[in-house]
């Protein structure tokens, strides 16, 4: 049989020619953000819960520490986004048909990853701003421009280890077990880190355990950022250590999962 010349062959002489790599990553960011933004079941809890928690519990604890408590709740808001949407979510969705399809399209893993990361940053920022907006509305919070910038930096630094922790858990656990257990860890770490009460608000066993928690280091860092106590190198070092540990577990779990599904 005669072979018909394929018209495409003449023009497609650059297989895999890099289009605009950043544009594709941006397309992923946009699609992910739009997709999530249209889910009320995602948007309302993500943006609403931390702010609501602040209204219910944060306002009344530790009078005179309004700035530090606000920073703690902002960290709690960022924690939720990077841990669930970015971390556990990325791992849990990997076997969905749509993700498998994206996987076989000509896209580099970093482009999909960057899109996901960018979207998480947007939602994390929105959730933190919701808390801060409520806190400012309630009054009593005065943080200078430098303080806000320092807080943004401290929130970003702390987000890394908890995103990695989410990825590690998502890949380690079965889809069924992941969400309940992730919730337990999320609320447990938030509480023991004093993100809801300030470290002074913890008592008994919780008070003794708190200094061992990665969330406590983060709490100290963000509180220091808004002026309640100095920046302490110790908190930063502890967060870096946790980040390295979570990264190792995440890498192990990711590789194990890859070997299982895409061997």
């Amino acid at each position: 049989m005669r072979q018909v010349a394929c018209p495409r062959r003449l023009t497609a002489t650059r297989p895999g020619a890099n289009l605009q790599p950043a544009a594709l990553a941006f397309a992923y960011l946009r699609a992910e953000t739009v997709e999530l933004a249209r889910h009320p079941g995602f948007v309302v809890p993500t943006l609403g819960f931390p702010a609501l928690f602040f209204l219910l519990f944060g306002r009344s604890v530790a009078p005179g520490q309004a700035a530090a408590v606000t920073a703690g709740y902002a960290a709690f808001a960022v924690f939720g986004v990077v841990f669930f949407q970015f971390g556990v979510g990325i791992a849990q969705e990997r076997a969905l048909p749509w993700q498998l399809y994206l996987r076989v399209l000509p896209v580099a893993p970093w482009q999909r990853f960057a899109g996901r990361l960018g979207s998480a940053v947007l939602f994390a920022a929105a959730a933190a701003l919701a808390v801060i907006g409520v806190a400012l509305g309630c009054g009593g919070v005065s943080i200078g421009v430098t303080g806000w910038l320092r807080l943004a930096a401290a929130l970003t630094v702390g987000a890394l280890p908890f995103g990695l922790l989410g990825i590690a858990l998502g890949y380690l656990l079965s889809p069924r077990a992941a969400l309940p257990l992730a919730n337990l860890i999320y609320f447990g770490l938030a509480y023991l880190g004093g993100l809801w009460t300030g470290p002074e608000g913890l008592h008994g066993v919780a008070r003794r355990l708190s200094p061992l928690m990665p969330t406590r280091s983060w709490n100290d860092l963000v509180a220091g950022a808004v002026g309640a106590g100095a920046w302490r190198l110790g908190s930063l070092a502890a967060l870096a250590g946790w980040g390295a540990a979570f990264a190792l577990v995440a890498r192990f779990a990711y590789r194990r999962d890859e070997a299982r599904h895409f061997r």
Binding site: R8, P15, Y101, L105, P106, V107
Partner: peptide, 9 residues
Amino acid sequence: RAARARLGL
């Protein structure tokens, strides 16, 4: 992934 640039799925 360059191998898949001319593939439709």
